[in-house]
Design a binder for these strands. Structure first.
Ligand SMILES: [Mn+2]
Ligand SMILES: [Mn+2]
Ligand SMILES: [Zn+2]
Ligand SMILES: [Zn+2]
Lengths: 165, 165
DNA sequence: TGCGAATCTGCAATTCGTGCAGATTGGCGG
DNA sequence: CCGCCAATCTGCACGAATTGCAGATTCGCA
């Protein structure tokens, strides 16, 4: 999603008002890589603005998502919001639930069977496993971890050439 | 998941009882490719056994999933259950919500960046688009259809050689 | 500065499940 | 075939995550 200043313009342009509640959320979301839930954002927002309502957080997140400034992820449990709208995928820790961005290339080499008649418009990939912090710790926390038959695939990692943000 | 007769043995073996409610659900689920929600199954079950409780449907689905006889899918909205536990992926229609099985090969050729420290255990792919029945019809029904920035990738389809079920 | 549409906030209502407790029943032992 | 009792079932309360409402406020243009 764009920065707070740009969002301010974008909102005004659409006839939407720029309230202090919205400005706070713009700020809390910009560059946020935690993929927070509405509740998590409410906690952050509430710390800086005790009077803000959870309802307003939901409303603003919905608006931003509708404007394409946020992606929303339904992975079981509360919906998580993502300010990073670049095409990318995710890796979710089955123990702590943390979500990390993952960039996947060469999607074109996949051989897909069963799409007969279905017109794909995009695909979402979610890797499941243990995050760095949880590796080595006990079993998964959530119930939905009955993954005994999960295919342990191996994925190639491209040469880690420099990145230019 | 296994057939009703095998499940009956499996349940008895675990000290679990085989009640008429469970037998009915075994039958309704076996070979079911609709990826039904608990509610949908309850509707089917209720037609044949008016007295069955929704609670029992939930309970049985949970048990079957825990035994690895069913996979459960959290894709937003109600959890969907899948008797097909072979490793596979899904294509969901953004208009009617229908889910179709999709088999993906060559996962190993994917170049994945960002998994630093994360230990992947498996991946789930969900293709989004329009199913055969909905192709040509209006826009998506559900709200979560703000997919203006969805990457329209192209996937290769392997030679449709015969299948031997 | 004023006004009115857009917002905000608090709370009721929904949707999807899960926790409980009392009434039933499957399945083994006698 | 009979009885027992743990495993189940059913109905309902409760909880989490959202969404619908309505009255009180406030942003932003005139
Ligand atoms: Mn992301
Ligand atoms: Mn399936
Ligand atoms: Zn973790
Ligand atoms: Zn469809």
């Amino acid at each position: 999603m764009r920065n707070p200043a740009e969002l301010t313009s974008a909102f005004r342009a659409r006839g939407l008002k720029v309230t202090p509640q919205r400005q706070l959320l713009f700020r809390l979301l910009h560059g946020n890589t935690a993929h927070p839930s509405a509740d998590a954002l409410y906690a952050l927002a509430h710390a800086e603005m005790p009077g803000i309502s959870l309802r307003t957080v939901y409303q603003t997140l919905t608006d931003l998502a509708a404007m394409g400034e946020l992606d929303s992820l339904s992975l079981g449990g509360a919906t998580r919001f993502d300010p990073n709208t670049d095409p990318h995928h995710h890796a979710q820790c089955s123990r702590c639930g943390a979500l990390h961005d993952v960039y996947v290339e060469q999607l074109g080499c996949l051989e897909v069977r069963g799409l007969d008649g279905f017109t794909p418009n995009g695909a979402t990939i979610v890797f499941s496993g243990l995050c760095a912090a949880c590796t080595g710790l006990g079993a998964p926390r959530a119930a939905a971890a009955a993954s005994e038959h999960a295919p342990v695939e191996q994925f190639s990692t491209p040469t880690p050439k420099e990145q230019s943000p």
